[in-house]
Write a protein that binds this DNA or RNA. Sequence first.
DNA 1: GCCAACGTTGGC
DNA 2: GCCAACGTTGGC
Length: 154
Amino acid sequence: MRYWLMKSEPDSYSIDDLAAKSPAMWEGCRNYTVRNFFRDSMSVGDMAFFYNSNSNPSGIAGLMRIVSEAYPDPTQFDPSSHYFDAKSPMDAPRWLLRDVAFVQKFDRVISLAELREIPGLQGMEVVKRGQRLSVLPVTEAEWQIIMELPGLGG
DNA sequence: GCCAACGTTGGC
DNA sequence: GCCAACGTTGGC
């Protein structure tokens, strides 16, 4: 069982959107490191933080669960999609995704500024400068610290 | 809206 | 296979 942090811009896709239609495809990741996480490192049953990026404040909004194996992201083949990739061969898709299921929306967003100030999270990937990957591994210790923060709700 | 950081592309 | 140019991410 592993833990993850997965970023989304809530203006385009929020945790409320996931709650309204769950499970859902985590589509649109166009980075090879992330693709490899989906393919090689994630397992069904893994837990993930839903992270609001480009937001005010940016931070962790809630929890979800990985509920499918990796499979090709259909948006790469859809010319009308923002995520269309003309260079991805149909018979050897470049981009993968996983289905995720809504678990819980926190009562508050745990801001990036708050995460940075918590002892024990100094090495967390998401607080590192210049870290742009939209899917990041979270250690079990980091996960536990965050889950014990006050005010997250039931 | 700015811009630092970083991944990707493509010329050579 | 190097690396400059370019595009994107994402905090602020």
